[in-house]
Design a protein around this nucleic acid. Structure first.
Length: 785
RNA sequence: GCUGGGGUGGUGGAACUGGUAUACACGAGGGACUUAAAAUCCCUUGCUCGCAAGGGCUUGCGGGUUCGACUCCCGCCCCCAGCACCA
């Protein structure tokens, strides 16, 4: 019988579903383990091989935990709301609602063909009213708790996606999604007050078990700076001579206060002064106007420009009169929008001073505390993190559940009226204005005020997709009641979360923020939703990222068809360390196919307990010696225990590539031997998380076991078996390897010397008496000449 | 520029706490089987000098510490990811 994955794989996939192998009892599970992986957004192209890679790696971990005796909950769903899905709908001219059914069905089929062990009973899609009812409910709670507010601000606008974006979605001045250059617009929008949690978001990073690179990215993004806020009085401001004015700056270097030679303010702050009565000279007005316009259209230039305001400030520390400049190198949205410039200690200030021939002081430094004291400043902590802009002027998202009434102002939709259903709008194209397409549907937006019952207007923007995904791990526990206390206590926080590093300051930050809010509202008992998070690497092709534009995207379907899901999964994980990613090439998959075929072929030989065919006339060599040795069994048994240890450790550390190599080594050994059935069973169990179908077929189909191998107990190694009484003594001369010799453990230096000296290769090099001998017990001996 | 990760054979990649560099695969070459091919099995395979025995060299580059360095220290170069005028 040949190994035929296309026959056995679908068979077991069906059987597993039927037996509910991957459906733990959410209420009664005794040993819960929540194994979560980032859910995909269903793109029209279907699942690609990158998904296959990450899901295989995460599934392997879950399978391992199941065999370790855990009730593993491994759910899946679709991040189906949002601009990505909507854009695809626009491209194909299909309504996203009609599209979703088709695409999620396709994903489900593909995921099942990969043999990922999901709890399909709990599958969810964020665009379904059952789900977004709770997304909206969370919005309402945010509003009621003062964490959702409206503010007119200069916000990021993506001309490609025709909507505003959060700071986190702007990558190097361009849209994270469509690469358009993001511009600034002055708009009134909904924000979530993530900054309230800046300190906690930062502090908790110290104790959560997350991939280091994600923690660092979040730390930088939150960007805590400790410094001082210092006031500089302004003198002779034209048009304001009669009043006392000052400018407040934020600095992390109050110790350099005596070196301050000028003050710089952002064009935005200058504009504000102008509006407040400052009569600026014409060329200054012109400059401000021009810079403000530029900031609308392009990301900030590094070429510093600037202009003298015409008036001065007083350095509070030494009472020196210094000029006030206006420049675009000072940001409006950070600190106070004004800085004290210390060219002697700040590269940017130095550059600016050089360009405009401003003085550079060499005044000495003082201590930070003294600097603050002398300048009359106060200590201040400043974060780089800004509030989360949550509204989107698009169609395909959960309508923001708010109503505006002229009399009562903003009112949340009463909870009993949730969900606010997204109406089916035929023309769902973004309008390009600051209004969502929902604003064209009078039936939708014309409502009664929930408070006074007068006619009012419903909010027509939808919320950011990242709000949908910021709580989905709760949704899997049951959409009828996602905050069910018993289930939450049992399953959360999530034991293991695996996903992409690209979400470091997006999803992974938002999801922590929401959990902290939930904790404060006493909905959950944890601040941190994921005990452990690991970022997987990126699967690349020919050294480059896979992308549609490069045309190097690999579809997993054809590989499943040609080699089977087991081979594909195992091959992907063999490419490199899971946290580092790998380079996909289709030649390497053959190696895994050969391996699985050899596993398949060895099975009948194990049952019959025969040596491999043709073993008698194998040439003497590694194999020949092994067979003739008396202690065959001992050596094989030791290797089995070594392999159990290695595979176990490697899975724990997500080093699947080396675990697979250890399994290959064991198989190579088995092929030279007569294998005992119990040893073979150990091997199959170790292989089961890597290749779930073939191992199940052998386990149940060939070996006639009743219970699925995936519910079997993970093998344990006996540490005593790993102890050896002999070791390979390494012999070096001048630190260079010259040979090795087997020796009993614990031999003395003298014995080792004698043993080493008897080696031919040593004799030829050991000329004369060594100056020194280095002896490392049970390891090596080094003669220094 | 800053932060993090990395640079090892023809390729993907191994290597404990400083102690045999190149595990495991892929590819390549040779052989067996076959009418032939595929598949399979066996052997070889870091580079280099040598008929051979054997020698020399080799973990991005240059130094250092050490009996001994892929591993530690100093100085550089390159690649990937993130941040980027955050005062």
């Amino acid at each position: 019988m040949r190994y035929n994955p296309s026959e056995i794989e679908p068979k077991w996939q069906k059987q597993w579903l039927k037996e509910k192998v991957y459906e733990p009892d959410l209420k009664l599970a005794k040993n819960p383990f929540y194994n979560l992986m980032m859910f995909p957004y269903p793109s029209g192209e279907g699942l690609h091989v990158g998904h296959a890679y990450t899901f295989s790696g995460a599934d392997l971990y879950g399978r391992y935990q199941r065999m370790r005796g855990c009730d593993v909950f491994q759910p899946i769903g679709y991040d189906s709301f949002g601009i990505n899905s909507e854009n695809y709908a626009l491209k194909t001219g299909t309504h996203p609602l009609d599209l979703m059914k088709k695409t999620t069905d396709r994903y489900e089929k593909q995921l099942k063909e990969l043999g990922i062990g999901y709890a399909w009973d709990e599958v969810l899609s964020t665009h379904e009213p059952d789900y977004y009812k709770w997304t909206q409910w969370i919005f309402v709670q945010m509003f009621k708790n003062g964490l959702a507010y409206r503010k007119k601000a200069s916000v990021n606008w993506c001309p490609g996606c025709k909507t505003v974006l959060a700071d986190e979605q702007v990558v190097a001045g361009t849209c994270e999604r469509c690469d358009s250059v993001v511009i600034k617009k002055e708009l009134e929008q909904w924000f979530f007050k993530i900054t309230d949690y800046a300190e906690k978001l930062l502090k908790n990073l110290d104790h959560i078990d997350w991939s280091e690179r994600i923690k660092i990215a979040q730390k930088n993004w939150i960007g805590k700076s400790e410094g001082a806020s210092i006031r500089f009085s302004l003198i002779d401001v034209p048009g304001q001579e009669d009043k006392k004015h000052f400018v407040e700056v934020f600095t992390t270097r109050p110790d350099t206060i005596f070196g301050t030679t000028f003050v710089v303010v952002s064009p935005e702050l200058a504009k504000f002064w102008q509006v407040s009565g400052w009569q600026a000279p014409d060329e200054v007005r012109k400059y401000i106007k021009q810079k403000l316009e530029e900031r609308q259209n392009e990301s900030t230039e590094k070429n510093k420009s600037g202009i003298f305001s015409g008036f001065s400030a007083v350095n509070p520390a030494n009472k020196e009169k210094i000029p006030v400049w206006i420049s675009d190198y000072v940001l409006a949205g950070y600190g106070t929008g004004a800085i004290m410039a210390v060219p002697a200690h700040d590269e940017r200030d130095f550059e600016f001073a050089k360009k405009f021939k401003l003085p550079v002081s060499n005044a000495p430094l003082v201590s930070i505390d003294e600097g603050i004291k002398k300048s009359g400043g106060i200590k201040k902590i400043q974060f780089r993190l800004r509030d989360w802009l949550i509204s989107r002027q698009r169609y395909w998202g959960p309508p923001i559940p708010m109503i505006f009434c002229e009399k009562c102002q903003w009112q949340p939709v009463p909870e009993k009226d949730l969900p606010v259903k997204l109406p089916y709008i035929k023309d769902f194209k973004p309008t390009g204005t600051d209004k969502s397409p929902l604003a064209t549907d009078e039936k939708f937006y014309k409502v009664r005020c929930p408070k006074c019952n007068e006619w009012a207007r419903r909010e027509t923007d939808v919320s950011d997709t990242f709000l949908d995904s910021a709580w989905y791990y709760l949704g899997y526990l049951g959409l009828s009641k996602p905050f069910d206390e018993i289930r939450i206590k049992k399953w959360l926080p999530v034991d293991m979360y695996i996903g992409g590093a690209e979400h470091a300051v997006l999803h992974l930050l938002y999801v922590r923020f929401l959990a902290m809010a939930f904790k404060d509202w006493e909905l959950v008992h944890f601040e941190e939703p994921f005990k452990k998070f690991r970022a997987h690497g990126l699967l690349i092709k020919d050294g480059a990222k896979m992308s549609k534009s490069r045309g190097n995207v690999v579809n997993p379907d054809e590989y499943i068809r040609a080699y089977g899901a087991d081979a594909l999964r195992m091959y992907l994980l063999f490419l490199g360390p899971f946290e580092q990613g790998g380079d996909f090439s289709d030649t390497g998959i053959k190696g895994i196919t050969r391996f699985l075929e050899r596993v398949w072929k060895l099975t009948p030989r194990v049952i019959l307990r025969v040596k491999p065919e043709g073993s008698h006339d194998l040439p003497a060599g590694k194999a020949g010696i092994l067979r003739s040795a008396q202690n065959d069994r001992g050596e094989v048994e030791q290797l089995i225990h070594k392999t159990i240890k290695k595979v176990t450790n490697d899975i724990e550390n997500l080093q699947y590539n080396t675990a697979i190599s250890a399994l290959m080594i064991l198989l190579n050994k088995f092929e030279e031997e007569t294998v005992a059935k119990e040893d073979w069973e150990v091997f199959l169990k170790l292989l089961a998380p890597f290749a779930p179908h073939i191992t199940e077929e052998i386990w149940c189909g060939v070996l006639k076991n009743k219970k699925s191998i995936h519910k079997e107990k993970w093998p344990e190694f006996d540490p005593a078996m790993l102890e050896e009484d002999t070791f390979e003594l390494i012999v070096q001369i001048n630190g260079k390897f010259r040979g090795r010799v087997s020796a009993a453990k614990g031999i003395s230096e003298e014995e080792a010397k004698a043993k080493a000296a008897s080696l031919e290769s040593v004799k030829t090099h050991l000329t004369g008496k060594p100056k020194k001998v280095i002896f490392v017990p049970d390891k090596l001996i080094n003669f220094v000449l």
